[in-house]
Amino acid sequence: MISAFAVIAVIFVAILVLTLLWVAGTYNALVRLRNQIENAWAQIDVQLKRRHDLIPNLMETVRGYAKHEQGTFEKVTQARNMAMNASGVKARAEAENMLSSTLKTLFAVSEAYPELKANQNFMQLQEEVASTENKIAFARQFFNDSTMTYNTRIESFPVNLIAGIFHFVRRDFFEVAADAERAAPKIQF
């Protein structure tokens, strides 16, 4: 004869095991999401760095044709330095948006120099900068997707209990300041 006590004990152990399995599964899923955000951030970082590397070359080329645009060059250099020194998601997003808009001014200025526009070197750099801008936009899109999925997950019941215990905290979005920026930044040719 199986005692009622044994039955209850078995049920209790089963519930305990299932709960532990669920906790482990949820924890792993959260870790995976968090890593995805880290990876997405690393991708943005790579592209931002690439843009910083392209700018000196671009300025050198433009300077050869458009000597009288000293003010624009200074603004770009300043924005680049600020962007390179910024830290933290929010500060960097702001600095990089600033850099994007000064670069737009630079390309708008170069419209006035037909010889510059026909320069092979300039055309290649323009393509690279434009594509890097696109890549930043797409990487940001993926980063924000991942962040939103993660934030929604850690705040919904009952996952929020586990997120609280293991210190999974909300992450910031990579915000876009201006409305014009919201459409993927594009440099017109």
Binding site: A40, Q43, E127, S131, N134, K135, A139, F142
Partner: peptide, 18 residues
């Protein structure tokens, strides 16, 4: 064809492929 490579990389980043 550098531009074709750029286009593919843009989409790879958007899709989150490694």
């Amino acid at each position: 064809i550098p531009r074709l490579h750029n286009l593919v990389e843009e989409m790879q980043i958007a899709a989150g492929l490694a």
